[in-house]
Structures are given as C-alpha cells and as structure tokens.
Computed example of a mutant assay.
Amino acid sequence: MELEVRHLRALCAIADTGSLHKAARQLGMSQPSLTTQLRRIELEIGGQLFARERTGCRPTPLGRLALSRARPLVSEMRALVNETKAAAARVSESPQLRIGSTASRAIPGWLRRLRLRLPGTETSLQMDVSANALLRMVAGGQLDVAFVHEVEGSPLRLPEGLRRRVLVEREPQFIFLPADHPAAAQPVVHLTDLAADRWMVDPTVDGEWDGLLRVLRAAGLNPRVLHGDYLTASSLVATGEVVTVCQPTSRARPDMAVRPLHGDPLGVRLLVAARTEGELDAVYGDLEAAYWEAARQAPVYGEWLAGRATAA
C-alpha cells in the first residue's frame, strides 16, 4: 500500500476532530471503513499513529511527526485544486487566442498590442523551430493562428483548408559575426570574406540548413559547419568561434556585429496562417505593426530598408 493524499486527509481529520466517529462523518465515510483505513496506514508506516482513549483519539509521538508532514501537503493540495478550478473557470469564461510562432523579434510587440486591444482574451503562445509542425497544429485545432517563416527554396507544406497571408514577401537574412572580425569593418559582407570561418546552423529549423547550403555552394564555399541552436550560436559568435545567419531585426552587441550579405543571397517569406479569414483579420494588423516596429528598432535593417526605398 502506498500512502495517498486521501490517507493524509484522513489522518488530519482524525487529529482535528479527536474522534474516529466525527472524522468519518466529516470525510463522508463509515467509522468501520475509517478504522480499517487507519490500521492499514499504521501497518504501512510501521507504528501506531493514534492512541485510542475513552475521551477519543490522541496522536502518538509518531503520529505528531506524520501530521507535521501531512498537514502542509494536504493544504498545498487543497490550494492547488482551488487555484486550478479558478483558472479553469476564467478560461471557460474568457475568449481564447492560441498563437504559435517561430522565432521573431516581433512577438513581444504583437502580444502587447493584442493584450491592449483584446483585454478580455486569454492569449497563449507556443514557440517551435518547425514551421510545418505549427501549421499542422493550426489545421488540427490545437492552435488558432501561426506566424512562421518559409526559407527560400524550401516551401512549407500548408495543410489543406488553411488560409494564409503574407507579411513580408522576402525578408533578407543577415549575418552575425564577431565585432572584431575584419569583415565587420565593412557595411556589407561578401560571403567570400567568410570563407575561412566556421558556420553554425540549427538543422531542426525547417529548410534552414538546405537553404544555407545552397547559398554557400553557389558562392563556391564549403566551410566547416557546426550544428546547434541559435542561442548557443550567439554565444559562440561573441567569442569568435563561428559566424551564423540571423534575422535582419537582430541587434548588434558590443561583441557581435550584424551585417547584410552582399546581394542578399538568402531570404525567407514571413506568413501567418489560420483556418479562417476572420481569424487572420483578428491578428494580422497587430502583427504587421509589431514587425515594422521591430524593424525600425534594428539600425542595420533600417539602413537596408532605406536603401531599397531610395533605389526604388
């Protein structure tokens, strides 16, 4: 027999009432059943927990020790149940918006705008490196909307029935490199300037490795490549170990520079998907505003955009 919360609750009831009869009534069970349960508990523990006297039940020293541990656990369980019920009631009463997204610096501004515009809506966020996985979750009803990026040359598999809206037709991918790298002295980096560097890429991001490989081969490069997540990649860039592709909304740090690649050889398409046009309408405007806010806050991307506007 393993002790369960109901057993601990029984011990507390006996101690609080000082009577097996009163405790059984409080627990909604018969006295013989409670007596049998107490005997099994004592057998499991290996000692008597209550002394049966004419005036009722009094905890033994072993019983007091058991109660000192049981009471906090019972209290915590009661609080857990109450808080969970309250949370469930809030969720059932409030509209819900379940968002999925690949990594983007637009997310904080997007969620902030949604919270201000939809104050009564419970908004949840699920991040995933796989855009295809997020799209499948939308199609399966686990998410309401997904904001994802599609690597150029590696089209996503959009499930049947989903609606999509393109936020940015082609977002150029920039490069993260150490601040003291010789190429960082230039406003634009040529891939050939990085021929001797090790690269780092996250192969779990849909299309990322294939897209980068195509670009490197087109430039005649075959560099050493490490596989890992982009948080680790940033740490390694800062220490001069690798260079890595980054989103243009990324910001430089004292030990890391962000630069465009000459000719913008690698791009992604940013899109948002949902099951209905109404669901897209509900989130698209806030996402669009948040993205361009993030773009304005990234100086290198801002210069790149200004240059394209002037050229046009």
Rank of each mutant, 00 (worst) to 15 (best):
C246L: 03
L177Q: 07
D16F: 00
D193T: 07
A257N: 10
R71F: 09
W292S: 05
E208H: 05
N82H: 11
S130G: 02
P265L: 15
D255K: 01
L11N: 05
E279G: 00
V215S: 00
I107T: 13
I45A: 09
H181A: 02
A312F: 08
A185K: 15
P223W: 06
D180Q: 00
L177A: 03
Q37E: 12
C12D: 05
G207V: 07
E293D: 12
T192G: 03
A89F: 14
M1R: 14
V245E: 01
S33Y: 07
D255R: 01
R117H: 15
E4I: 06
E279Q: 09
L167I: 03
Q142C: 04
P223D: 04
R217H: 08
T123S: 12
L49M: 08
E2R: 00
D210R: 14
S235L: 15
P254I: 12
L125E: 02
T36I: 10
G141V: 04
A289G: 06
M29S: 01
G63L: 02
L97R: 06
G228D: 13
A13W: 06
E152Y: 03
P182A: 05
P265W: 14
R90N: 09
P155V: 07
Q297S: 11
R198A: 12
V151W: 04
E76H: 13
Q173Y: 12
L167A: 08
G307T: 14
P265T: 13
E122G: 05
S94Q: 11
A24C: 07
R251T: 13
M256K: 10
L236V: 08
G18T: 00
R71P: 08
P119G: 06
A23W: 04
H190D: 11
L34N: 07
L125G: 01
A70G: 08
E93W: 13
V151I: 02
A70P: 07
L135E: 01
C57L: 04
L305E: 01
E171S: 05
D128Y: 10
G120L: 10
L261F: 07
G100Y: 14
E171M: 05
D193W: 03
R165D: 06
Q26M: 13
A133H: 00
R259D: 09
P182S: 01
A89S: 14
A106Q: 09
R112E: 08
R117E: 15
I99G: 02
P182G: 03
T192W: 10
A66E: 02
T310W: 09
R217A: 00
R115N: 10
K85P: 00
G302E: 04
V81S: 00
A133F: 01
V225K: 04
